[in-house]
């Protein structure tokens, strides 16, 4: 390892005196046996539906959907978008933007759609 890397103590040592169980014991090198649950799995395992509904929990403190009418903005420019292109499914503000979106390569269209979570992926 290079001297400057060692001097900067960039790399986390594997042994610490203050630990009762060292991480190399817990997670033997090269194999992380533990598969950590994702947030969705944690929520599922938590069985919140069995808890009293008036007790606050991680799920029921989430905000409800907005009551305001959904603001539609142009996917390219951010202007207000009165129009919708049925071919690319993009929203657009004016004819110039329309020209742009019609000349966009398909993967760009997909990325713009993915930005507002509107990309339909067919598996």
């Amino acid at each position: 390892m290079e001297r400057e890397v060692v001097e900067a103590e960039l790399v986390l040592p594997s042994h610490f005196s203050f630990k009762k169980i060292q991480s190399y014991v817990k997670y033997p090198k090269g194999q992380s046996k533990v598969r950590w649950k994702h947030i969705k799995q944690i929520i599922q395992a938590e069985n919140y539906q069995n808890y009293p509904p008036d007790e606050p929990n991680y799920v029921n403190i989430e905000s409800p959907p907005s009551m305001h009418p959904c603001k539609r903005i142009c996917d390219i420019t951010g202007f207000e978008a009165p129009y919708f292109d049925p071919r690319t499914k993009l929203r657009y503000a004016n004819t110039e933007v329309f020209k742009i979106i019609r000349s966009l390569p398909p993967d760009y269209v997909k990325r713009y759609l993915a930005l507002r979570n509107a990309l339909v992926v067919i598996r």
Binding site: L12, P13, F16, S17, F18, K26, W36, I42
Partner: peptide, 23 residues
């Protein structure tokens, strides 16, 4: 969620705070 990563972060944090005893 990822407690392996959390552990590395805590290791680093305690280490930089100067912890050097047995616990």
């Amino acid at each position: 969620c990822q407690f392996e990563i959390m552990e590395y972060v805590l290791d680093f944090g305690f280490d930089r705070l100067g912890a050097d005893q047995s616990e």
